[in-house]
């Protein structure tokens, strides 16, 4: 079997997952269905990561995003009684307008991108270098040490914030 061929096949498969999941996310009436569609979409994205040899990101996507965030979403959906919100109108009045505008912009973007992008030539990778996880770690903790530290503060703020917001009595 031609590996190129498999790559292509997988790409289209995952792209289908991503886009199909995405469309289902925004069209489903029920929030639970939306959440499940979103998981599908994210699995597709994770697959794309794998195709691109971003193994660490693949793991992060599965564990953190799909495992963490989506559980959080589902948890809140269950916690907040959505029965009554199901009865409400689910779409904005101007939804047609919005869809038209965004699709127009999207088509334009796709058309703009349809020519092969002439990106600067890449530095070829030295074969037999360190693995993906190690390389990510190297860059993260040397070049991007500062944003990493800022992100820790950011997460602290997020933790405090969600506790402040969600707790009944402080």
């Amino acid at each position: 079997m031609n590996p190129m061929w498999i790559d292509t096949l997988f790409f289209y498969f995952f792209a289908l997952l991503v886009l199909g999941g995405g469309v289902a996310t925004i069209t489903c009436k029920s929030a639970v269905h939306s959440a499940i569609s979103l998981i599908v979409s994210m699995v597709g994205v994770a697959g794309l990561f794998l195709l691109q040899h971003a193994e660490f990101l693949f793991a992060v996507q599965i564990v953190l995003y799909i495992g963490g965030v989506m559980v959080l979403f589902l948890f809140v959906i269950m916690l907040v009684n959505l029965d009554e919100s199901m009865q409400m109108r689910q779409f904005n009045r101007q939804w047609l307008l919005a869809v038209a505008a965004v699709i127009a912009a999207g088509v334009q973007a796709v058309w703009l991108l349809s020519k092969p992008a002439d990106l600067p030539a890449a530095v070829p990778q030295v074969p037999g270098g360190p693995g993906n996880v190690q390389r990510v770690a190297d860059v993260l903790f040397s070049q991007y040490l500062l944003p990493f530290e800022i992100a820790s503060v950011l997460l602290l703020a997020a933790v405090i914030g969600s506790v402040v917001m969600a707790k009944k009595r402080l």
Binding site: P147, I150, A151, V153, L154, A157, A158, I160, G161, V164, M165
Partner: peptide
């Protein structure tokens, strides 16, 4: 980007 989000997140809360 991370700085922006740090600020924005604090403001949301």
């Amino acid at each position: 980007f991370v700085g922006l989000e740090l600020m924005a997140l604090c403001f949301y809360i």
